[in-house]
């Protein structure tokens, strides 16, 4: 479902309550949410890194230059990085430190790139990987 339908006038019900309700009951798809941690009691999450644009399966999403590609994907609610060769099962983040290779994707035409340890560069073209793709 692509749209949020406001059932109540904004003046009557706090928009955040409606939004929360909508998310809770699956009325808003994950991909429309922001998963960045903006405020934190201990960690300074403020960054002066440039926001750039990358393309994921043809769709443009914002990303912070230098962050792992995987972090940018998670920030936009994208949690599937590849499908397995035989059973076509989805895989996503598992170890987050470049050990398990479950998050590999095709980055700028190059397959089998571990997105959890590969930094974002402006204009990257990223594609979901199917099986073990051959390097061209």
């Amino acid at each position: 479902m692509k749209f949020v339908i406001l059932l109540f006038p904004v003046e009557v019900v706090d928009f955040r309550t409606v939004w929360h309700f909508a998310v809770q009951y699956g009325m808003v798809r994950m991909a429309y949410m922001n998963y960045r941690i903006e405020e934190h009691a201990v960690v300074n999450t403020a960054s002066d890194t440039d926001t750039v644009e990358i393309t994921v399966d043809g769709k443009k999403i914002p990303a912070k230059k230098g962050e792992p590609i995987l972090a940018a994907l998670l920030a936009s609610g994208i949690r599937i990085n590849r499908y397995t060769a035989k059973k076509h099962e989805p895989r996503g983040l598992f170890c987050g430190i470049g050990q398990c290779t479950d998050c590999v994707m095709i980055v700028n035409g190059r397959p089998n790139v571990r997105t959890c340890i590969t930094p974002v560069e402006s204009g990257m073209i990223i594609k979901t990987q199917n099986g073990i793709e051959k390097e061209v």
């Binding site: 998963y35 960690v43 598992f94 170890c95």
Partner: peptide
């Protein structure tokens, strides 16, 4: 256990504390 969204606690910790993104809600 291989479903996206299942991960090591370390992976979740890396994403939230180092990269400041949430791997789920």
């Amino acid at each position: 256990w291989t479903t996206p969204g299942v991960m090591g606690a370390g992976a979740a910790q890396t994403m939230i504390n180092v990269h400041h993104v949430k791997p789920g809600t």
